[in-house]
Design a protein around this nucleic acid. Sequence first.
DNA 1: CTGAAAGCGCTTACAG
DNA 2: CTGAAAGCGCTTACAG
Lengths: 339, 339
Amino acid sequence: MKPATLKDIAEHLGISVTTVSKALKDYPDVSKKTKALVKELAQTLNYKPNAFAVNLRMETSNTIGLIIPEIVHHFFSSVIKGIISQAEKKGYLVIILQSNESYELEKKQIDLLMSKRVDGILISLANGTADFKHLNDVIEQGKPLVMFDKIAKLVNCSKVIIDDRKAAYNATQHLIDTGCKRIAHFRGPLLPQNSIDRFLGYKKALEDNGMSYDPSLVYIFDNMTFEVGEMFAQKILREHPDVDGIFVNTDLVAIGAITEFNRNGVKIPEDISIVGFSNWFMSSAITPSLTTIDQPGFEMGKMAFKQLFKELKAKKKKKPIVPKIIELETSLVKRDSTK
Amino acid sequence: MKPATLKDIAEHLGISVTTVSKALKDYPDVSKKTKALVKELAQTLNYKPNAFAVNLRMETSNTIGLIIPEIVHHFFSSVIKGIISQAEKKGYLVIILQSNESYELEKKQIDLLMSKRVDGILISLANGTADFKHLNDVIEQGKPLVMFDKIAKLVNCSKVIIDDRKAAYNATQHLIDTGCKRIAHFRGPLLPQNSIDRFLGYKKALEDNGMSYDPSLVYIFDNMTFEVGEMFAQKILREHPDVDGIFVNTDLVAIGAITEFNRNGVKIPEDISIVGFSNWFMSSAITPSLTTIDQPGFEMGKMAFKQLFKELKAKKKKKPIVPKIIELETSLVKRDSTK
DNA sequence: CTGAAAGCGCTTACAG
DNA sequence: CTGAAAGCGCTTACAG
């Protein structure tokens, strides 16, 4: 059986489609009696407006697109949760796409979302994205776009971020304050802005404290995995036995390193102190528990949607969209991996 | 500037909308010359069919809905990834909703997806779901529905599952084979089918081996967290110091328990052996590494979408949908938490 | 207070 | 090979 339409209701009641439509939406110029009749019949017929028709007519679908580099990742899945929960409150649905850290895929997905005519787009960039035309196209076509976490400074849209540089500075400063003299940095990939900023924060802290910056102490790797942490911990022991502190780009890698150090009888924090980044829930669980920077994923998702929602509303009112940078607070969580 | 429409192209070229539409879709009854002209102009105007109009006309949107109890969860986010990756291959988009393990929310979300007229629905049930009317309604309305992981046996739709009972049986048997005499079970919540089945597998293994089943050794809890694992490990030490093996419903809880046992100087596996469930990537990382049941999340998501896709195709061809149960293989991964 | 009519942008059966 | 016409189901400016 096909779903009921306005026409069905109109015919049943012997009135016009126009009146039925208005009655259901409580237009003031429909009599109470008619409204009551229409609403009752709509109820019994289980009438639901055909979303496809409404979309076409209204040129909007109350659906947004979300592109994220990797779903299976505690931080990102927290962000997704924040976005979805906030979107649901405002009556928006979220289509999720995963770029797999690939610029090519990301570009295609932007195209796909545009052709599906989502109302707006939320994105965290792939590590490989260095060209931003696909994003500028979105903005040019007047479609609200909000970036979060992995952003491009050169794209003129709203962004929800943390101050990676400051957070990294604080993390490194904490290592220095607790007596570390030779501090390495597990940096991660080269391109993404937050990777760059965390590195710069690390470097600045060293300089401000009169410690020399040694490029050979900065370790670069593409995959942020537990195994990478193990591997680079070994590398540190081999290449730089004098290192007594490490600032690691992300908790998962830091935990891999801790596991490897534990295995090799390296004492944490006595021999080597470690600070991570993100405050993944496992960080408080391992031994020793990991000092880290708390990075509010759920909150970031929530704020990203909130900002997008504001822009969606502005657009509806034909008001100009004013890009905004929203910076969320981070904090250093001191645990047992530092003195 | 508004996006180009068929009409724009038709007017530019002085031909009809019909012909433009056919040309773009390579209908055989349009001349090569016309096709070439149309396609070229479409290209330069950056023509993209208006998805809203196509949806309305075709009564389909190539979009499916996914309802999942909790996104921030390694197993579920792997499933999501499997679903999305497969959907993308087939040209489908996925709207994701999170039920927060709430039956009420789940019901509302089903309603929402139905009113948005998604082509099909993928769902893993909330722990609280005991009434299935909302799901049967979906089926009655002829909308393809596939359940995965947390299913309801009573709903007549396709399901992608593992044999939880068998897997749990094997896990318990392994504890018995390695010499455990008094085996506890961290069961998790009461309602979900997989929780029930894992419990039944545990019980059956005990019985088949002539070991008495002791209900006081079965621990029930609603939240599957690391902390719950720590708490119940303590409880075991207090209430049942004679326990020498535990089969835990899920790795995260097992890892919490291991951490607590380590803290208390309980030797694993010498004093207590532990088997988990799911093969979370941290299971191989902790010390001792965790023996567990490998539960293929990504694969499950992939298969769930594949089955839904089959039903979507069947529906298009007006063929009847025949519900299918797809059972994925699990395996016991032996590590250091058992002898 | 009610309704006829136009239109959103597409697809396709049908006529020529 | 081409096109006029109907129709998907809704919304809303306009007339009465």
